[in-house]
């Protein structure tokens, strides 16, 4: 037997492959969203799937995020497995009612008698010059809602495996995909596989500081760690991968080892991922191991600006991570 094929795919291609394999495996799975049919999706994620699976399984919806999200919830309740694409994560604000009041709570409100097997995909993040209403990172909003699971896969390998795990999941899973990752390439096995939801992964082992990062910030943190290693700073980089439920054990173990913690994320800094991880460490046995203040590097307290200089300045960049971690290690924070 041949060894399983591993090819290089882009993050977007990996998503498309996961969607196709999920539809091949389970007739209940279908896709819905705006312009995901012949247009192929605003980011060409669904591509030509409509030609392979037909309009019944790759459904273009009207521009009606609230109603369409509700249709997805109802279909999930009645035996389907919808995978819903928001064209931009920002547009999910129009559909929060169905996500937050309905999808997240129906199982609980109904005493556990039903599940809502719904996957929603959110193209998110800045860096494309699309300005304030097409660039946000709103994952912390949804991670605040019990009943939802929220994932932020950072590599082509992870997005395929985590999306397939999300489609298997009996509960609503919100998948945040940074738009700058869509073209990133990486090794992806051809056969279907699952990457578990709720498990962080150490991307780079180190002893000097634990950097917990999400989505595109994982890559910037890894670049920063390489630069810092040249200065004798040995950073451990943890890819959180799932915002709810958070894998606290991996972070606690890392901080106990390194004695320092930095959180790097694109969402607005205040009340975001960094606040949660910092507080979790402060509440844990790792608190006694801390040798320095905790560093949070998040998005600016501002909407995402259009001007490219300002846009770049509004979210953590590699050089900022390097400088701030260096400051922390050198006792300047």
């Amino acid at each position: 037997m041949n060894a399983p094929a591993i090819r290089e795919l882009s993050y977007a291609q990996a998503i498309q492959e996961a969607l196709a394999q999920a539809m091949d495996a389970d007739p209940r799975v279908f896709l819905m969203g705006e312009d995901i049919g012949v247009y192929g999706g605003a980011f060409q994620v669904t591509g030509d799937l409509v030609h392979r699976y037909g309009e019944d399984r790759v459904m273009d919806t009207p521009i009606a995020e609230l109603g369409a999200a509700g249709v997805a919830v109802g279909a999930a309740l009645a035996g389907c497995r919808p995978v819903f694409e928001f064209q931009f994560s920002d547009f999910s604000a129009l559909a929060l009612e169905q996500i937050v009041n309905q999808a997240a709570k129906i199982r609980f409100m109904l005493g556990g008698k039903v599940s809502v097997p719904l996957v929603m995909r959110f193209p998110a993040g800045s860096g494309t010059g699309a300005a304030a209403q097409h660039s946000q990172s709103l994952e912390a909003w949804l991670a605040h809602v019990p009943g939802l699971k929220v994932i932020q896969p950072s590599t082509p390998y992870d997005i395929k495996g985590m999306l397939l795990a999300a489609i298997d999941d009996p509960d609503p899973v919100m998948v945040f995909e940074h738009k700058l990752l869509y073209k990133m390439k990486g090794d992806v096995p051809a056969e279907p596989y699952r990457v578990p939801i709720g498990k962080a992964i150490v991307r780079r082992a180190g002893t000097g500081i634990s950097i917990v990062a999400t989505s595109i910030m994982v890559h910037r943190a890894l670049e920063a760690a390489e630069i810092l290693s040249g200065e004798g700073i040995d950073a451990e980089v943890i890819d959180l991968r799932t915002l709810r439920p958070i894998d606290t054990a991996t972070i606690i173990a890392s901080v106990k080892k390194t004695g320092r913690l930095a959180c790097v994320y694109e969402g607005v800094k205040t009340l975001g991922m960094g606040a949660e991880i910092s507080a979790m460490i402060a509440e844990s046995e790792a608190f006694d191991y801390l040798d320095a203040p905790i560093l949070r590097l998040g998005g600016a307290e501002a909407p995402i600006p259009y001007n490219p200089v300002l846009e770049k300045a509004s979210v953590p960049q590699t050089e900022v991570i390097v400088a701030r971690v260096r400051d922390l290690l050198q006792g300047r924070i």
């Binding site: 279908f30 609230l66 999200a69 249709v71 997805a72 109802g74 999930a76 309740l77 169905q98 009041n101």
Partner: peptide, 22 residues
């Protein structure tokens, strides 16, 4: 289900009808 949100159940019914059709 009943619903605490005014109009919350309407798109859900449409989704259930979509499932019926599928």
């Amino acid at each position: 289900g009943a619903n605490g949100i005014v109009a919350g159940g309407i798109p859900i019914a449409v989704g259930a009808a979509l499932a019926i059709k599928k």
